[in-house]
Amino acid sequence: MELLKMLSANELVAQIISFLILFFLLRAFAWKPILKVLDERGDHIASELKEIEEQKQAALKAKADFEGKLSSIEVVAKVKIQGMMEEAEKSAQRIKDDAQREAARIIIKAEANTKYEAVKAKEEIKDEVANLVLGAAELLLEEKVTSAQDKKLVNEFLDKLDRA
């Protein structure tokens, strides 16, 4: 009974009303909206993290693909370069051979020309000498002989000289 004297019905009822008003006010404009914001932010962060994880996985996959392609490209390029180098060596050898053949041909042709020119020059010299000898002989000999006979005699003389 002593305990009940501490109670005041007015205070009790007023406090209940005061608390209920506060509760409904805060529930309506504070608790529910804030909890909603927290849930939305949590969902947003979770979805963002999931998206980031997916993008990370995709990037890793792309990197692996790229590295695979890069290594295969390197192998192909190496093979191609090797092939091209071999082809280039073959071409160089072919050109060298052609050049050597051409040089040999030119040398042979030049030698032939030289021989021909030498023979030709010899013939011309021979004719010239013959004519000179004839001229000299005509001056020395009083006897007139035909030109054909003179030539024949000179040629025979020269042949003898060659053989000698």
């Binding site: 006010l25 909206p33 939305e40």
Partner: peptide
């Protein structure tokens, strides 16, 4: 008669005001 209710009312008003100011412009 209303001493305690006056103080609890002041508290309730302060709480409502603080909450109202803190979330009146809610942002992400």
């Amino acid at each position: 008669l209303w001493e305690n209710i006056i103080f609890s009312g002041i508290i309730a008003a302060i709480i409502v005001t603080v909450f109202w100011f803190s979330i009146r412009k809610r942002k992400m």
